[in-house]
Write a protein that binds this DNA or RNA. Structure first.
Length: 437
DNA sequence: TCTGGGGTCCTAGGACCC
DNA sequence: TCTGGGGTCCTAGGACCC
């Protein structure tokens, strides 16, 4: 059996853990630059705030309904995620962390367990230690576990947050209930095509012939069909090193000159290089892209990318920035308002042994330097050591007007509790006059 | 004014090889 | 009249996920 554990409204729940006065109230979390809604509490969903809603279009609705708004605080969410995952890990022989808020569980050898009871135990343990509510689905395949999880989440009272598909009867019932578009692996395009055929539910989907599925959804679709039929076809995955690493951002306003973009591209390159070193790998090429604001139909549009191959594998921020800027100069055109740019390192290989190009030797000489930079940045703060071609006054120019404290990873931002018996509740520094315990 | 960021896998078609 | 057959590798694009 597989399990899928999923944190409910994860980012919103993280914020709520430290602000219990928001329980039962609508909470939204915004993307970088406070642009779009990327997480919503159930109450926010009930107000009709869709995923990805541009914040400025919903400002009135937020004000009217007293919606609590947060800028994305990925440091906090990452740390909370690690806490949740480590608790879950103690309950199962093996698991695959699938995303920041989800994990597949492997339950080999649990034949004699009452899985539903066990799931409730896991739920309780996670909640008690982190304050994060989770839902769990159990089933014989990963795709069915996803479906079971959806049922658990949809009917929290009836299921107690845990649902198991452990018979054909329950499987068929679940598939008839589950909309095709909500099946894990069926996205917008496929569900549109399926809808034209009159396929509405997951059950309708598996009633299609193998040939049809193979033709229009490739082997991926076929695998999915097997999974929904109850035959496990997608295994638990081992943690792997990433094959591409990206750092991309929209700008708060827009940029027009090559120099402005170069500074951003250097900064993105340095971040990509850091991420490479963190997983002990190097890259052999980099893609740089830039684009104008696609939402502004009144302005001239331009978008382009370029891949620059390196003569050697490297994880030096200096080298990667150099190649990336080369590429940028080649695709940059005057006369546009650029809204977004990004750097993606590709062709990733293990850091050692680095293959030296016969005619050019540059990479290893930065190794001690990069190590030193990492060490200093780790001890005195992120991005304190920079290249001169980066803007020295800032790291990201990003709007983050509603950023919550990094409660769990910065001592000076730790939660402060008023234990005087007056007022009550918990408040963070800055909101209230409180005593630090 | 304002619209996110970061990944993976598969396929078709072209280039090239013998 | 009649113009092979079978590989591999790479890339761009499309689909999906959170």
């Amino acid at each position: 059996m597989f399990g899928l554990i999923d944190c409910n409204n994860f980012y919103a729940s993280c914020e709520r853990v430290f602000r219990p006065e928001m329980n039962g109230k609508p909470v939204v979390v915004l993307s970088n630059n406070d642009g779009c809604v990327i997480a919503r509490s159930n109450e926010a969903k009930s107000l009709g705030i869709p995923m990805g809603a541009p914040a400025y279009q919903f400002q009135k609705l937020f004000d009217k309904n007293g919606v609590y708004i947060f800028s994305a605080n990925f440091v906090l969410y990452g740390d909370m995620s690690a806490r949740v995952m480590s608790i879950v890990a103690s309950f199962v022989p093996d698991m695959e962390i699938y995303s920041i808020d989800e994990a597949f569980l492997l339950l080999d050898g649990f034949d004699h367990f009452d899985l539903e009871e066990y799931g409730k135990k896991i739920r309780k343990a996670v909640y008690k230690s982190t304050g994060i509510p989770v839902s769990i689905g159990f089933a014989p395949t990963k795709a069915l576990a996803k479906a079971a999880n959806r049922i658990a989440k949809k009917y929290p009272e009836k299921t107690g947050g845990v649902y198991t598909i452990n018979s054909d009867e329950k499987r068929i019932k679940a598939l008839k209930w589950l909309k095709a578009e909500d099946v894990w692996g069926i996205g917008r395009q496929h569900s549109k095509r399926l809808e034209n055929l009159g396929v509405k539910s997951a059950w309708d989907f598996i009633c299609q012939s193998d040939g049809w599925v193979r033709k229009y959804m490739s082997v991926v679709g076929l695998r999915l069909k097997r999974e929904l039929e109850g035959e496990s076809s997608i295994e638990l995955e081992e943690p792997k090193i990433k094959k591409e690493i990206a750092t991309t951002r929209s700008f708060e306003g827009h940029y027009t000159t090559l120099d402005q973009l170069k500074e951003r591209v250097v900064t993105f390159s340095v971040t990509c290089a850091e991420k490479l070193r963190k997983q002990n790998s190097s890259a052999r090429s980099v893609m740089v892209f830039l684009l104008t604001n696609a939402h502004r139909e009144d302005l001239p549009q331009y978008q382009r990318n370029i891949v620059v191959k390196f003569p050697f594998a490297t994880n030096s921020g200096i080298e990667i920035a150099r190649f990336a800027c080369d590429g940028l100069s080649r695709i940059f055109r005057e006369g546009y308002n650029y809204k977004k740019a990004g750097v993606i390192v590709m062709d990733i290989v293990p850091e050692n042994p680095v293959q030296l190009n016969l005619f050019e030797n540059s990479n290893p000489r930065h190794e001690p330097l990069m190590k030193a930079i990492d060490r200093i940045n780790r001890s005195i703060g992120h991005h304190k050591v920079k290249l001169a071609s980066q803007d020295l006054d800032r790291t990201w120019k990003m709007r983050q007007e509603k950023l919550s404290p990094r409660y769990t990873t910065r001592l000076h931002e730790i939660l402060v509790i008023n234990a005087t018996g007056k007022g009550g509740g918990t408040k963070t520094d800055g909101d209230f006059e409180t005593k630090r315990l």
